[in-house]
Design a protein around this nucleic acid. Sequence first.
RNA 1: GCGAGAGUGGCGGAAUUGGUAGACGCGCUGGUUUUAGGUACCAGUAUCCAUGAUGUGGGGGUUCGAGUCCCCCCUCUCGCACCA
Length: 818
Amino acid sequence: MSDRYEAQNIEQKWQQKWASANIDAASDDPSDTRPNYYCLVMFPYPSGNLHMGHVRNYCLGDAVARYKRMKGFNVLHPIGWDAFGLPAENAAVKHHRPPAEWTYANIDQMREQLKRLGLSYDWSRESATCRPEYYRWEQWMFTRLMEKGLAYQAEAEVNWCDPCHTVLANEQVVDGVCWRCDTPVVRKNLKQWFIRITDYAEELLTGLDTLTGWPEKVVGMQRNWIGKSSGAEVSFGIEGSDETLDIFTTRPDTLMGVTYMAVAAGHPLAQKAAEDNPELATFLEECSKVSTKEADIALMEKKGMPLGIHAVHPVSGEKIPVWVANFVLMSYGTGAVMSVPAHDERDYDFARKYDLPIKQVIRPAEGDWDIETAAYTDAGVLIHSLEFDGLASSDAKQAITSWLSEHGRGSERVQYRLRDWLVSRQRYWGTPIPVVHCKDCGEVAVPDDQLPVELPTHLQPTGGASPLNECDEFRYTNCPECGKAAERELDTFDTFMESSWYMNRYTSPRNEEVMVDAEAMNRWAPVDQYIGGVEHAVLHLLYARFYHKLMRDAGLFTSEKGGDEPFKNLLTQGMVLKDGTKMSKSKGNTVDPKAIIERFGADTARLFTLFAAPPEKELEWNDAGVEGAYRFLKRVWRLLDRKIENGVKDSGDISALRRAIHSTIQRVSHAFEHGFAFNVVIAALMELTNSLQAFAIADEQDEAAYREGLEALITMLAPFVPHFACEAGERVGMDRMAVEQSWPEVDASALVSHEVTLVVQVQGKKRGEITIARDADQDAAMAAAQADAGISKWLDGMQTVKVILVPGRLLNIVVKPA
RNA sequence: GCGAGAGUGGCGGAAUUGGUAGACGCGCUGGUUUUAGGUACCAGUAUCCAUGAUGUGGGGGUUCGAGUCCCCCCUCUCGCACCA
């Protein structure tokens, strides 16, 4: 055995031992009495290379999983591959190889990289979403949703990304550009497949309240995205027509202040009016072009044109001009609004610009308001509102809405910003949508016994349209209902479909009978701890919550035995930066995990990524810091062989050492249970290392105390640097592998000391320290303080006014001149 | 513009309930070992007119005592951004 710390040999040795002992598998044995714990990290897209963001994510997850095992839990800690998606097609075009080949080769490569890190995954559950055994259940689920009317095909204005050659969901458009390639998206009218996430809007919203283990930030982002607002739908008449102009408003109390109506450029009324008005048609054209969003859209000038038609006020019967306005969104509410310039800033600006009347109908409850200066947007008391005069805004909302309902001109209404999930993509490398288009039968779901609809894996993308379009053997089939010639749906699913349910599939990954096994869901779900990047706050994490509920409502499991939410606790890790910015190939500031592992070993890489910053914060990469982590391991290494030392006469302070040992156990354990501040945990372990190093071993008692500390240190290091800990444990003769040790218990009696050091303050300023008995009273403390020359000189010639004793911490003496 | 969070040494970052500010690490300085460099180890490291004073973005306040609580201001980060 070498006396030097040789990471490479050690890591290889223990990885083999763990694998052959199969210690990382989760047990589905019903007689296993251990409590269950499900720790999940966001599975990677198999790009071929592990980057530091992955390393950070997986080291966090591994520390949690290993800790829980040591605490006696039966831990499920799976991994797999989010293997469908566009990069595979792009690579296929570049290398002239089918995406499947590229994907599977990357998976093999990345699997080796993950294994080299010594992550304690249950590899027997590994799965890849591009395998038919996986996606067949997604297809099965989709046909269930079609039966329920929760999946449907519709023509709608959708986001189209030209470089990606596909449509995108709303969630995938960030500031008007494609989330993948940063190209501005184009609005197009296309027939697409949707899933009715809006049916679950309310549950997705109220469910957020139960997610107490999630960062508030993420909860807030989702709440914002769902965007619930309550108000009323109001039907205005249209002069000279039987039709109505319906609008949604959150301020029905301002109804009597309407002076004009505004509709979106895409609104049928505007379109119709433009037919015989070329000037208007030109304006509408302009508006539709601007809808390709720019960053400064908010600053865009408000523009409009009268349509030349009039609406009829539902209460007063007044004639109200109808305008088209560029700030009204066709995609929200009804695409039309009632404009109350007196009480809405946008309407106010617009009215001023086009010289439209402003009619105040709300006054502040107290004081005056000059409506000539600005709109009054707060609640208040109604005026100029006929029978509603004198009501407070909140009462008036009720009263006016009731009046409208009674007269058939409106109703209470809740509006969500969330829109249905567009799931079809005009791409090849994805899950085929299990639908056949038949001339006679329409869209027919592929029956269960014909699933999966397998994706042909040999096709070669060329960069343009999906090669599925050219693949006759896939495209042409027979209608499952009438048997006549028919065509398959050629679009594939959004890859967020696969990642929306993988966490549940891991509970029974090889089951060929059902999508997820109810018993396994009962055992493992929901995920106890989920760890991943915050960039998925409204994408993956919203879809996964939705899909979990769809699975529940498909009868795959129940609320009681599987949960209403998929992830109980969520940790969103920060990005890994270099030189203050995100690592990227184009900036040339990447750090290759492989190089770090080859030079220092996996344990050093793991230790540094956990130590350098709190998990949820950004991590600034620092090569010198990595060496520091390596140095620390070498320092611990040197402590392993210490015994009773020749020439040492004075024993170390055993009770002080034991206090250090057990307070470290306490601190480290606390961090694992609350907040995962591993940077602080590792600092505490370094402190313990320093204490052990400084401890003098003169006799057997010393040696026993030292050994207690050393074993505790090794055991607590195991979740972070498992190979190192195992080797160190073996070297000092611990009975089991360090990663299989029980987590150390705090010996409360070791924490108390009979003497304590009190900080002594005079006038709140620190003037010295005294060491006194732990249970000393105020008088004893005062006596000790006065006996200390450094302190007493501040008390000379002074009269003591007040004494504050904080037991075990400090003594503050308040004085004034005598 | 709206909302949330954060401002602590040269750097990353610590500090239960208000109770020793700067743990731990990096860097830096000096030393030991080494033929030398590197490694390793030991000591020091907030600032300043230094028996003391000052110090957690700035200014006020509460308190025996404030990084922590309250008010005002500044800066940065993130999220949302015409949602009617």
